[in-house]
Structure formats: C-alpha cells, structure tokens
Design a protein around this nucleic acid. Structure first.
Length: 427
RNA sequence: GUGGCUGUAGCUCAGCUGGCAGAGCACCUGUCUGUGGAACAGGAUGUCGCGGGUUCAAGCCCCGUCAGCCACCCCA
C-alpha cells in the first residue's frame, strides 16, 4: 500500500464523496421544490465580501469571533460570507426602485464560520436561505413558516418528528416591560431564555439572580415562559396562527415563549424548527421578521421575513430518521461490457447508439475478464449488462443480462434500444 | 476561545502490570479459460496521527502538536 502522507484538508471543511454529494443534492432539491411551490425565485450573492459589510449588521460574535477573514493580495480585508442577509440587503438596496414587490427570493450555497467543529457544526456548510421582502403582515410571516413546513413534509418529517416553534419579540418586549426589565437588560434576558432548556431549573434560577434579576422578576419570567396561551393576547400572533391554520400547517407549529434567537436584527415574529427525536434539541432551521433591513447599506427602510436552514444539521436529522433515499451509485443503469480486445469497437459503437436513443450507458474501458466486469456492474448497482462476444457479433445479436433477476436473453442487435427501454421501464 | 475523551490495516475495532503488530469486514488470486450477488481455499496489507522525551526495550508511560468527538460559547 502507498505510504504517501496525504495532505490534510483544511480543518472544518467538508469533502463530498458521491454519497455525501447525493445527500447534499437531495436537501437542495427539496429546498428548491418547497421554495418554488410558493413562487420564490432563486438567486445568489458573492461568496467573498468585504469585512465592512458585516461590521454593522450581523451579531457582534458572528463578525468578531466567527468570520473567516483574511487580507487579499491587494491588502483589502475580505471575508468568506458567514451569512447571507447583509448581501441580500445590499443587492436589494442597489435595485430598490426596480424590483417588483413583494420580493420572494431563495438561495442555497456555501457559508463559512470560524468555529470549533463538532457534530452538526463545521467551518464550511451549505445553507438554504429564503426571504420575502416588502409586506409587513402576520400572513407573510405565516407563509415563510408554511414553506419551512413544506420542506419538512417533502423530506418526510411529520409533526411527530419535528416541529416549528414560534414566538414574537414585540410580545416579549411588552411582557418584559410589565416585569420592569430595563431595555439595557433585554439582551441579557434573551440569552438567559435561550439557555434555559440547557440548564437545570435551580441552576438556571441562580444564574438569573446573579445576572441581576430580582426574585419577583424571575418568578414573572418563569410564569411568562411557561404560558403557552400567551399568544392569544397578541393580535399579530392570533392572525399568524389563523393564517397557519388556513394554510393547513398548524399541526406542525406551536407557540413557545422560549424561542428568542440570538441574532439582533429580528424584530417581530421569530421561529425555529426542532427535531423532536434526537438526543440534542438542535435547531434545524430558524428565522423571523426583521425591520430596517437596508438601514446599514444605504437603502430606504424595508422590512422582510425569512429563515435559514443549514445542510449539516438537516442531513443528520434526516439520516437519524431514516429519511434519506438509498444511494444509487451509478447514474447509468446499463453497462456495455468488453468481451475481448477485438470487440472493443463493437462495444463502444453499441454504447454510443444507446446514448443516441436517450439511454444512460457506461462503457467498460478495457477487456478485463468478463466476471470482473459483471462484478463491477453489480457494485455500481446497475440494472442491465450487455455482452458482445464472438457468438453475438457473428449473429448480429447482443446478450442482455438483467442484473436484478439474473435472467439473460439474446436479442437482435437492431432491437436493442427498444428492448433496453422496455426493461428499464419495468416491462 | 475554555474544559474533557479519542487517534492502531481501506473500514470497524482488539492489543493485559511496557517485551516479536492482531481480528472481522473489505481487497487480490484461485476453485470457475463466456457471467455479478453465495460458498470454500489461499494471499497481500501498517511511519500504531505527528514530533520529542523516559527506558535495555514504547502502540502502551511523560511532554508538545495536529485532527476527530463531547460539553461550554455561539449558531445553521
């Protein structure tokens, strides 16, 4: 065996062997189907942006700690995009007067964050982003949630396996007002809420008191977070749930006052989808409503609603639930074998004819022992192998072997394309 | 960025208180000079992650480093 030392890949990057590529494409296809079924247009932005673009927008941590930044050969600070929203804001701003509203855009592409890699989190990942820009209405928010649900349905995640949890930041702010929690403490309280599910109740309570809450405020906060009926007191959420009901997705969606979301720019509805079956409750996707999207990139005020889904967690969830389609190694179901060197041209000619008639065909590239060629076709999961040996060539025939049933018949050379098509059609 | 666990054949892993580097699967060859999936027989395979140290002797002990995993942090 080779003793070569293989140059390692960059830490946290992903290598997509055909099987992993099939998984990524599966997620992409389902995201596209969900997006397009609601009329969204596909778009994309640069993978490299200036550091400046992110400095004003995204959460502090995201830029300072997690951005993949470097200096280019010209001395400019550039960043591998850690998220899409700032690029979206700029691109919208540049054509703000020309676009047709509501803008409905979706995208699927690579992102980079300089984090410590572990399961479900790498430094390089693919993300589905989808946004509606323009209208401010609970019904628009509901549409995005319905798209998330559509994706879940398309991949086979039913309400027993995964669910979308919804909250509203304005509602929470008004509740925090009632508890006399000052504005400057809101971020702290948000983090506190995010952390609650990960800590034991008494440890969390202690932590909250140390963070500056009074016992009264803590009691109020707990009561608030336990109140699953709170949405009924907030008009936007009442309308949101009515819309979700009309869209037929309400069994997938629940109100949950514990959903806060770290990103600063969310201003209204926020939501996250979780896998209910896994040991770790990790968010599959998350999003919400944001206002003043364009404020920092020089556009006029415009609000929107959207969400993002990473391929890493989504892939794990699908795998753990047995929802990934079986990997089919060969895109071509037919193999043309090469019986001997002297029949190579015959075999190539046959494979070319079959492709001409629209059939996906692989040619075996050399005259290996026929058994080896069959073994190859078997490992590649192919359906049909064709053999052109001395007997067949002499009689203008081709031996056609059904690799699934094991049956083999000889067919007149001229009838081969039709015969293969019928076999592949299941006849 | 902080703390912990792990790293041995292509893969999954065993390897005792330091004493000749192992198994299963996969692979190759043959049984089978016109046929895959099965069976049987045989065969090849290692910088024991990397670098240093201790020792007569290190896969095993010590230090460092890299990578993966887990928990924080954050989030997709």
């Amino acid at each position: 065996m080779a003793k070569n030392i293989i140059v390692p890949s960059v830490k946290g990057t992903r290598e997509f062997y055909p099987e992993e590529m099939a998984r990524r494409n599966f997620i992409y296809e389902k995201a596209r189907e969900a997006s397009q079924s609601f009329g969204y247009q596909e778009w994309d932005a640069p993978f490299i942006e200036t550091l400046e673009l992110y400095a004003a927008k995204s959460g502090e941590e995201l830029v300072k700690e997690q951005a993949f930044t470097f200096t280019d050969r010209g001395g400019s600070f550039v960043t591998l995009r850690p998220e899409l929203t700032p690029s979206l804001a700029r691109m919208i701003a540049k054509k703000q007067r020309q676009l047709v509203y509501p803008v409905r855009w979706w995208s699927f592409g690579p992102f980079w964050r300089y984090e410590r890699p572990q399961k479900g989190r790498s430094r390089e990942f693919f993300q589905w982003n989808i946004d509606m820009l323009g209208p401010v209405s609970p019904e628009a928010d509901a549409e995005l949630i319905a798209i998330a649900v559509k994706f879940m349905q398309l991949v086979g995640l039913d309400p027993k396996l995964a669910r979308v949890y919804v909250n509203n930041r304005q509602l929470m702010d008004s509740e925090f007002d009632k508890l006399d929690i000052p504005t400057e403490s809101r971020l702290m309280v948000s983090n506190l809420v995010d952390r609650r599910s990960k800590m034991k109740a008494d440890a969390w309570a202690k932590y909250a008191l140390e963070a500056g809450l009074s016992q009264n405020q803590l009691d109020g906060l707990i009561a608030l977070l336990e109140n699953k009926e709170l949405w009924k007191e907030w008009d936007d959420l009442v309308r949101l749930f009515a819309a979700l009901d009309a869209l037929g997705v309400s069994e997938y969606v629940e109100f949950d006052p514990n959903i806060m979301r770290g990103l600063l720019y969310y201003t209204g509805t926020v939501f996250e989808a979780f896998d209910l079956t896994g040991g770790v409750r990790r968010a599959i996707l998350g999003g919400g409503r944001y206002d003043n999207l364009l404020a920092d990139v020089g556009g006029d005020p415009l609000s929107g609603v959207g969400f993002a889904m990473g391929d890493v967690v989504a892939g794990i969830v699908l795998e753990e639930n047995g929802l990934l389609p079986e990997f089919d190694p060969s895109p071509a179901p037919v193999l043309v074998t090469v019986f001997a060197e002297e029949f190579m041209a015959e075999s190539l000619l046959l494979s070319a004819e079959l492709r001409e008639s629209g059939i996906k065909v692989m040619s075996y590239p050399k005259a290996d022992k026929i058994g080896k060629q069959f073994k190859f076709s078997n490992k590649m999961g192919m359906k049909i192998a064709l053999v052109l040996g001395a007997d067949e060539v002499e009689n203008a025939q081709v031996a056609v072997k059904n690799l699934v049933s094991g049956e083999q018949v000889k067919v007149a050379r001229a009838d081969i394309p039709e015969k293969i098509k019928k076999m592949l059609a299941g006849e």
